[in-house]
Amino acid sequence: MFRQLNHLTVVADGRYARPEELNFLRDYLASVETRISAYEKIRAEAEMMADKIQSMQKAENPRCFHLINGDRSEICRRDLVDTIRLCASAMLFSELDLLRDNFLLWYRTIVKSFNYEASSSSTYGKYLPNMMKELLTPEEQQVMQPVLALGSSILSK
């Protein structure tokens, strides 16, 4: 939402913003309570979701967190928790482009350099979206869905 808001301040420097140009702000204001409520649910359950996802990953492949230097479960869990939080933030502020450009594209490199693509695909393409479905109301899912789709499209192979 920031690019539009930033753009609006620039626009309003040179002329009055037109009704249409204020619409994104009205739309955002109309959805803010849903976004906040979804955000708070995710915040409350993020750790539990990360635990569950790791369990399911390990059940599929017991050595999935064993990389060159041994068992890296801790690091992977931390990365997963962080990524969930950044997704929640992108949903809260309605910011897909920033999430993609400032994080997802960079993070994909970590995934690649550790040859973690298979697990990443199931995490972000299957496990995480399913958990969000169970956690959120239909209205809340609606605002979260684009973020999950973006994350899955970039972090899955």
């Binding site: 920031f2 915040r43 939080r85 933030s89 502020f93």
Partner: peptide
């Protein structure tokens, strides 16, 4: 804008708290 951006920046590093979300609302 700045309050929102500030909150957004901080929410990169940790969850926004219930108070911050109240403030936002």
């Amino acid at each position: 804008l700045r309050q929102l951006e500030k909150l957004s920046l901080e929410a990169d590093g940790r969850y926004a708290s219930t108070e911050e979300l109240e403030f936002l609302k």
